[in-house]
Amino acid sequence: MSGIGAAPAARQSLTSISSGELRRLWTCDCELALLPLAQLLRLQPGAFQLRGDQLVVPGPAEPAATRGGFNVFSDGLVRLDGQLYRLSSYIRRYVELTSYCDYKDYRETILSKPMLFFINVQTKKDSSKERTYAFLVNTRHPKIRRQIEQGMDMVISSVIGESYWLQFDFQEAVKNFLPPGDKVVNGENLSFAYEFKADALFDFFYWLGLSNSTVNVNGKVVNLSSTSPEKKETIKLFLEKMSEPLIRRSSFSDRKFSVTSRGSLDEVFNCSLSPRSSLMEPLLAELPFPCVLESEETPNPFI
């Protein structure tokens, strides 16, 4: 009958990735992804290791970091199977920047690798238990990269040398993906922000809170949960390809505040699930700076 509309598509389960999705699993199609943290640890032992009460993540100065990996955004702690673990290295979800050099380093760092956030989910089936998931943001996907870069560029052009606060939030994307009745317990973990404090004499808009902005990043979330050995092997290759080192042929040195990254799509994007490219090629230099990166060498107020 003409008066009856088509039924909305049912949301997928978090139990396992479908065979149809698996056949289309390419890094160039993935904008955002979600999978159990325990599964991520098993599939990426070179990037994450549990040692006692610590979850070890290679920092920028460690040799393993040159092989790619993920930028972990956190407050320093993650809960897995009821136990609390300290992170050895991570990017704080909130940082203060006071110079163009800080801003440039921060921008290059957060876009150099896929982003990773830890969240706890309560399911409608059993609300008494929480499962820990890893939420991945593919910063090499043009749609995702564009939203982050444009958000940073637009706020700069609007404040004209004044102080400002900018937040990027993924809560809506995850909320729309989860099955009805499931909810994220610690939704604030799906965001990160930075505050740029300019040396301005009169920061009226900043003082009044009018220079605060939030960018709600939108994208399609891919379910990477699976119990099948065959599917897990494909997901492992997918994660390795996504987290390969970013090799750029252009320089960041001439980037201005109001200009987005100039690298072409083939420089930041690769659709193939072939083995890793040669590690002899030059890698993107990572610049650790105290105001952003936390590690065991830096006292952590959250631990």
Rank of each mutant, 00 (worst) to 15 (best):
G5F: 14
A6K: 14
S13F: 08
S18C: 02
E21K: 14
R24D: 15
L25F: 03
W26A: 01
T27F: 06
E31W: 03
E31A: 00
L35R: 03
L37G: 01
Q39T: 15
Q39V: 13
Q39G: 03
L40S: 07
R42A: 09
R42T: 12
P45A: 02
L50D: 08
R51I: 10
R51A: 10
R51M: 11
G59D: 15
A61P: 01
A61V: 02
E62D: 00
A64R: 09
R67H: 10
G76Y: 03
L77D: 02
L80C: 05
G82Y: 12
G82M: 06
G82R: 12
L84P: 06
Y85M: 11
Y85E: 00
S89M: 02
V95N: 09
E96F: 01
T98M: 06
S99Q: 07
C101Y: 09
D105F: 08
Y106M: 07
Y106L: 01
S112N: 11
P114E: 12
F117Q: 00
F118N: 05
I119K: 02
N120Y: 11
K125D: 15
D126Y: 07
S128F: 08
E130N: 12
T132P: 01
T139R: 01
T139E: 06
K143Q: 02
K143N: 05
V159S: 02
I160H: 09
E162W: 01
E162A: 14
Y164V: 01
L166A: 05
Q167N: 05
Q167C: 10
N176K: 15
N176A: 07
P179A: 06
G181A: 08
G187S: 14
F192G: 03
F192Q: 06
Y194I: 09
D199S: 07
F202C: 08
F204H: 13
L210I: 03
N212F: 13
T214S: 02
T214L: 01
V215Q: 14
N216R: 15
N218H: 13
P229R: 03
E230M: 05
K232Y: 04
F238D: 07
M242K: 04
P245V: 08
L246P: 05
R249E: 05
S250Q: 14
K256Q: 15
F257P: 05
R262Q: 15
D266N: 00
L279N: 10
M280R: 05
E281L: 06
E281M: 02
P282V: 08
E297D: 04
E297T: 09
N300Q: 10
